[in-house]
Simulated assay, not measured.
Amino acid sequence: MENKEHEAFESVFTTENGWDLTCINGCYQNIGTFKAFAGWKAAKEHATPKGFVLVPRKATKKMIERGYEAHDCFFTLGSVRNVWDAMIEAQEQSHDNSK
């Protein structure tokens, strides 16, 4: 998991943009890069509330297929998409009403 975090971080904070990405045992050696990475991880931890996951607004083809398969093909592919859209809409309305 940590390697994926480093890869994601380094896709934004690049050597071309002047960042020293020297990393030994998972630790950036440059203090500025070290602090930037710590901030990156902290921001990601707080971006999604505990118990939630980020999902796309529109279900991907793979998600729809898995939903269809999970119900022993009871739903049509189109109805799985409709269920997904309804769940996203309900959560958005719930979030808007909580303000």
Rank of each mutant, 00 (worst) to 15 (best):
F13S: 05
I31M: 10
A8P: 00
D20I: 06
W40T: 01
H46D: 12
A43T: 10
T14H: 03
V53T: 09
F34I: 00
H95V: 11
C73D: 04
N97W: 08
V55A: 12
W40S: 02
F75T: 05
H71S: 11
H95T: 15
L21Q: 05
A47V: 00
H6S: 08
V53L: 07
G51N: 01
K58E: 14
V55Y: 06
T76K: 05
N3V: 12
F75H: 11
K41D: 01
E16N: 10
V83F: 09
Q91K: 13
P56H: 14
T15F: 02
K44P: 05
G32W: 02
A70R: 09
F52A: 10
K58H: 08
L77I: 07
N3D: 15
F75N: 08
L21P: 05
I64P: 05
M63L: 09
Q93T: 06
Y28Q: 02
N97L: 11
T60Q: 04
E69F: 03
T22G: 06
N3R: 15
N3A: 14
Q29I: 07
G39W: 03
I24C: 04
K35E: 14
V55C: 13
V12C: 07
K99P: 00
T76F: 00
F13Q: 10
E10Y: 04
A59H: 01
F74A: 11
A43I: 10
N82E: 10
Q93L: 12
F52P: 02
S94F: 10
N3G: 02
Q91Y: 14
L21G: 04
A70L: 03
T14N: 03
N30T: 01
R81V: 03
E7M: 06
A47C: 08
I64A: 08
R57G: 14
F13A: 10
T48F: 01
E65V: 14
W84K: 04
S11V: 02
I88A: 04
H46K: 14
N3P: 03
D96W: 08
